[in-house]
Design a protein around this nucleic acid. Structure first.
Length: 402
DNA sequence: AGTCCACAGGAAGGGCAGGCGA
DNA sequence: TCGCCTGCCCTTCCTGTGGACT
């Protein structure tokens, strides 16, 4: 592209009519004024938390539901309203919200407690202190804090899976071990069978109250989308059927509202980029494959070098063999690749874990099988197809000159 | 019925970088 | 500076195992 045409492109962009009024309303950060189809849950959580307004400690709550069923949104909505009422009645309520999946922020016990202490205004170094020291700092901060503290632990299942449930036990004991503080823990989990694997003591105190958020159906998704679309798009931009299609696609995927909103937003962006005046169903189709593709490509790009090389070995083998390939073959080829690139190969044990990680990311599909005399192993198959496959191959080829 | 393969995957611990207080 | 602490990545060592083969 010459520099002149690039200037034209920018000029065109500035002069083109934008399809969006307020794109924010289609992102997950946006908190709407009302939450449709969640009245029951809002009222339940509201009545459980209401004692906080009189300075009492509400029961702990545990909330389950698949991604995009409104758990976080509803919780933040209720807690936000509660805080407003508290403020106008001169009651002190503190909110501590953490997403336990946040990388490098709250993905270990130490970091979680350090982050929480930070929210209460106590600085804790990112590393270096013994864990009990960090707890001590956090507890002191709680004691100094007059009033009820609402501790919202979002995606708590991810953290427990990673570091165990010990920290939950410590947290649930806060109210017994400290004098002034009144702490209510609100746990939010995507995993419905989460509490099956945690300590019984933790379980009983953590889930005083349990709530399950059912998936949205296509009609409910359509309502949600219509409301957000009217805020975010200019008038008469979204064609008939677009919202219905987004809702239907997301409903197939366990009723995930986040997915539905993403689809609509990306469809709008695609239409805008093509200088179209309307968003059509066709754009939704494109949005669907774009979202999936971006997700995978991003995952591949952010892998460490060893994983990328391993993936390259898997790609090369699947090119040749039409059927499954096995851990042993992959490891051998990976080692020769390492040799060529001048990288020290990892052990088979470690590679086995890396393969499991690639499986978790849905880049490959694996299954543990027994081949009788030929031992137990994992069958590995690429989970990429078409455009995604060629983009990944392209990227890995440019990364390694083999 | 017993053997044995080729790994899976758990447990423990080493080495490193980053950070603390003394 | 030193000793001690952390998380993270990795290795070493180990036990477990489904089913083809003997």
């Amino acid at each position: 592209m010459s520099q002149k045409t690039l200037k034209n492109l920018f000029d065109n962009y500035i002069n083109s009519k934008t399809l969006f009024k307020d794109k924010n309303a289609l992102t997950i950060k946006y908190t709407p004024d009302t939450v449709p189809h969640r009245n029951d849950q809002i009222n339940q959580i509201g009545s459980i938390l209401a004692p906080a307004l009189k300075g009492d400690r509400p029961s702990n709550i545990f909330i389950y539901g698949m991604t995009g069923t409104g758990k976080t949104l509803v919780t933040q909505y209720v807690v936000g309203q509660l805080k407003e009422s508290a403020a106008s009645n001169n009651v002190n309520i503190s909110l501590l919200y953490v997403n336990c999946k946040m990388k490098r922020v709250a993905d270990t016990e130490y970091r979680l407690i350090a982050y929480l202490a930070g929210l209460l205004g106590k600085k804790v170094p990112p590393t270096g202190l013994p864990t009990d020291q960090v707890y001590k700092i956090f507890f002191e901060a709680l004691e100094e804090n007059k009033g009820v503290v609402m501790l919202i632990l979002d995606e708590i299942d991810a953290l427990v899976e990673k570091v165990g449930d010990e920290f939950l036990y410590t947290l649930t004991r806060i109210n017994q071990d400290t004098d002034n503080s009144k702490v209510t823990i609100i746990g939010i989990s995507n995993n419905l069978s989460f509490t099956e694997n945690i300590d019984a003591r933790v379980k009983s105190s953590l889930s005083d109250e349990e709530l399950i958020f059912p998936p949205y159906n296509a009609l409910q998704l359509k309502d949600i989308l219509s409301e957000r679309a009217s805020i975010s798009f200019s008038e008469d931009v979204v064609m008939d059927g677009v919202i219905q299609k987004c809702a239907a696609l997301a409903a197939q995927e366990h009723g995930d509202a986040r997915r539905a909103l993403n689809l609509l937003r990306v469809a709008g962006e695609l239409a805008e980029r093509q200088n179209m005046e309307k968003v059509t169903e066709n754009h939704v189709d494109c949005a669907e494959s774009k979202i999936d593709m971006d997700h995978i490509i991003e995952a591949v790009k952010t892998q460490p070098k060893q994983s990328k090389l391993l993936l390259k070995a898997i790609l090369s083998l699947t090119d040749k063999a039409s059927d499954y390939i096995y851990t042993g073959d992959v490891f051998d080829l990976y080692v020769t690749f390492c040799d060529k690139v001048g990288l020290k190969p990892l052990t088979q044990r470690r590679v086995s874990d890396l393969i499991a990680e690639l499986d978790m990311l849905s880049i490959i599909n694996t299954k543990v099988i027994s081949r009788g005399r030929h031992g137990r192993t994992r069958t590995i198959r690429l989970a990429l197809s078409g455009k995604v496959y060629s983009r990944v191959t392209e990227f890995l080829d440019s990364e390694f000159n083999i």
